[in-house]
């Protein structure tokens, strides 16, 4: 009895260790998901970006003004992967905009909840920098927060929901590549 008490005092609890490791792994998994997400957008591989969503995914880019007041209008408002696909397709095939480079920086990931069915709620801050080819500077194109819901599809994390809520209410001219 005394021996068992000693073990508990001096060695980490196996279950606690397991759950901390799981949290770390999940955090890492989301962080690397976001890194791949940013890379796909930076390289303008919009088909790859589309594949990071579930079939029924919601993808909305909306201002903090609208979000805070419960107003639903979004700069981009996709209610399904099919609409995300159409967005990607139209941007690549039909849209006219000046060539540009974008850099998506994602940080401050926080897992808010992880359910046993694999659904994860999380958030992260993001910054999008934009470079136009005739200007020397990279401008802060958008700064905001991702409110996310992830689900596992065949073991892989996919976005079931990403609401990109941006703080800079005045969009500089046009948002050409998703955030």
């Amino acid at each position: 009895m005394g021996k068992a008490a000693l073990t508990r005092d001096h060695l980490p609890d196996a279950a606690a260790l397991d759950s901390r490791l799981q949290a770390l792994l999940l955090h890492h998994e989301i962080e690397s998901f976001n890194a791949r997400y940013a890379q796909a957008l930076d390289e303008q591989r919009l088909a790859d970006w589309t594949d990071m969503f579930t079939e029924d995914a919601l993808y909305v880019v909306l201002s903090r003004e609208n979000f805070d007041r419960g107003l639903p209008v979004g700069l981009i408002y996709c209610e399904s992967k099919r609409m995300i696909h159409d967005r990607a397709f139209a941007l690549m095939e039909t849209s006219m905009f000046a060539p540009r480079y974008l850099r998506h920086i994602i940080g401050n990931q926080i897992v808010l909840s992880a359910e046993s069915n694999g659904t994860v709620k999380s958030r992260a801050n993001y910054v999008v920098l934009q470079v136009l080819l005739d200007r020397p500077d990279a401008t802060l194109h958008q700064v905001g927060v991702y409110y996310d819901v992830f689900r596992r599809v065949g073991g892989t994390l996919k976005l079931a929901e990403r609401r990109c809520v941006y703080d800079n209410l005045l969009v500089p001219n046009a948002l050409c590549i998703p955030v």
């Binding site: 996709c78 609409m83 849209s95 006219m96 905009f97 001219n173 948002l175």
Partner: peptide, 19 residues
Amino acid sequence: LRQGNLMGPAGFLGLEDNE
């Protein structure tokens, strides 16, 4: 809201007008 994808600074039509 869905049709709003045409409009605004990220809209299929709106972004092109702005550019």
